[in-house]
Design a protein around this nucleic acid. Structure first.
Lengths: 149, 149
DNA sequence: TTGGCTTTCATACTTTCGGGTGATTTTGGG
DNA sequence: CCCAAAATCACCCGAAAGTATGAAAGCCAA
């Protein structure tokens, strides 16, 4: 709010300058129109500056959406029946869970301490056993079957 | 930029009014100081208004976390709020739904009667807007945000 | 021990995805 | 009417994903 005072002071100062300048302008026989025009110009500029400084928020808040997992609906227990009916091994199931986490093959490889080739093999087998073509579909089906959260 | 012209017009108009008013004020024997003061006041106000309207606030982005309550399962109605907060268009949302169905870009293209390139463009934009790297993650996040079933 | 299963890894190849750029057209709102 | 946003499409390139095939090592039960 100091700025408000500052601008008030500037206004006052300008007003004084106006009065001083006034006689000058008048005595050297300038037209009043010109004088008024100059005053108008100066003050419109001042107004712009004041308006900008005093009314422009320094921070524009950009809200960022962050999902809060409220409903972790039910603890989730794996349907073992489905797993061995489909012939999905433990390791494959582990990797299936990681796939469902949205991980890439490389990331899964790193996390599981195996090569990416191994992951690919597992993924391929999973796709076959779930009878789907892509990993996205694998997630869908696995969720329906209750073998991933 | 029409507004610029508008304000120019207003300025011109005020100038004309000034000239008309000038004689009035003078003849009825008001002091020049008062007259000038009024002019200054009017123009400073005008300046403030112009400044406000014409200047775009510089964006200092401060992210604010907004929790999105997700109610998994049950009726599912799209959270429109989230959609336009993220700037996701109708078309993009349609394609997002198809992605969530486990479809490939080619399949989406066929179903939507557009080229695969178009689909790719949309998908890329979706990934950016959802702030994720892969389509699988896009599905995850979209589900959490309540914009896909 | 042998045969079956899982897990691991590799190499090579094809397809799909995703990034980047740029261009054109459509459309909706002021 | 005009403009900005949205939608459309193309091309290139590299990365990721998926297919196919083969093979080695470990485990476990018959």
């Amino acid at each position: 709010m100091k700025k408000l005072l500052l601008y008030g002071a500037i206004l006052a100062l300008l007003t004084i300058l106006l009065q001083l300048a006034e006689y000058r302008f008048l005595v050297i026989d300038h037209t009043v129109e010109l004088y008024v025009g100059i005053v108008a110009l100066v003050f419109v500029v001042l107004g712009v500056v004041m308006g900008k400084k005093l009314t422009t928020p320094k921070e524009v808040v950009v809200e960022k959406l962050v999902p809060v997992t409220t409903n972790t609906s039910l603890p989730f227990s794996v349907n073992e029946m489905v797993l061995d009916k489909l012939g999905i091994s433990k390791r494959e199931h582990e990797i299936l869970l990681l796939i469902a986490e949205g991980m890439s093959n490389q990331e899964i490889a790193d996390k599981s301490f195996v090569s990416i080739n191994t992951v690919k093999t597992h993924v391929s087998n999973i796709l076959v056993k779930l009878d789907v073509k892509r990993r996205v579909q694998a997630i869908q089906k696995a969720r329906e079957l209750g073998i991933v959260p």
